Simulated assay, not measured.
Amino acid sequence: MSVSFEPSTRRAALGDELARPTRIWDLPTRLFHWALAAAVVGLLATGMSGIMEWHFRLGYTVLALLLFRLLWGFVGGRWSRFASFIYSPRWVLAYLRGRSHPDHLVGHSPLGALSVFAVLGMLVLQVCTGLFSDDEISASGPLTRFVSNAFVSLASQWHAVFGKWGVIALVSLHVLAVLYYVLVKRQRLVGPMISGDKLLTGLRVAESRDTTSTRFTALVLFVLCAVFAAWIASLRA
């Protein structure tokens, strides 16, 4: 006996396999991502060329952005929260063996999460050491007078040498990984970070909340972070 489906049933079955746009990255996360990328490039350029006044301004901008991302990692959209991409070693190994859970490929993958945390951690360390650095010529961080000369010397050495090249290495590795996934594995990574949506086939997941109220909350949080960064900057005077 052959089994036939009504047209509506066939369409429903087919629809389950069609790629559906799903909101993964909320607007605040997307704006943070691109603003941080531009600011980091500007930081490296101004630092290497000795344009220190702009280097400091961009440093305070990155400080505000990182503070915002720390807060947004707890109250942001579903896939922007740290809880959604903190993986145990078991899940990282499963991903490397090609047996990752489908949900772990929606937001940041296990390897992608490691890359994100490494870049953010390095940037936090770089910004913090910058606040205590002194080039002994014309530029000094706003917090140098609150610590010992030995601490300033240590922070300055890290910031100018190890931290700088660490940031360059991690950012370069991050970009190369994105290019590999886009060009070799044919995964859309850049588009969703612009539009916010991913096309998911045969997989239903909770979307990130991205409403007017959540965006307003993000704006308030960023303003508070910017005010704090501006206060830190005022200590340099």
Rank of each mutant, 00 (worst) to 15 (best):
M1W: 00
S2N: 10
P7Y: 02
L18V: 13
L18W: 01
A19E: 10
T22N: 09
R23E: 03
R23A: 09
I24E: 07
L27F: 05
P28F: 06
H33V: 06
L36E: 07
A38M: 10
A38V: 13
A38D: 07
V40C: 12
V40L: 13
V40P: 02
V41D: 00
L43C: 05
L44N: 11
S49L: 08
G50I: 10
G50C: 05
I51T: 09
I51K: 09
E53Q: 12
F56E: 06
L58Y: 01
F68K: 03
G77P: 07
R78D: 04
R78V: 05
W79C: 07
I86W: 13
Y87I: 09
R90L: 12
A94D: 14
S100L: 06
L111V: 14
A113H: 10
L114M: 15
S115A: 15
A118P: 12
V119R: 03
V119K: 04
G121V: 11
G121N: 12
Q126M: 06
T129C: 15
F132A: 15
S138Q: 04
S140D: 02
L143F: 07
T144H: 02
R145H: 13
V147W: 01
F151G: 00
V152I: 11
L154G: 09
Q157K: 07
W158M: 04
A160D: 04
F162N: 00
F162T: 14
G163F: 04
G163D: 03
K164G: 00
W165T: 08
G166W: 06
I168V: 15
I168E: 04
S172L: 14
V178Q: 06
L179H: 07
Y180D: 01
K185M: 04
R186Q: 07
Q187I: 15
R188N: 13
P192T: 06
G196E: 02
D197C: 09
D197W: 06
L200M: 09
G202V: 08
L203N: 11
L203T: 12
L203C: 14
V205Y: 09
R209W: 01
V220Q: 02
A226N: 03
W231Y: 15
I232E: 09
S234K: 00
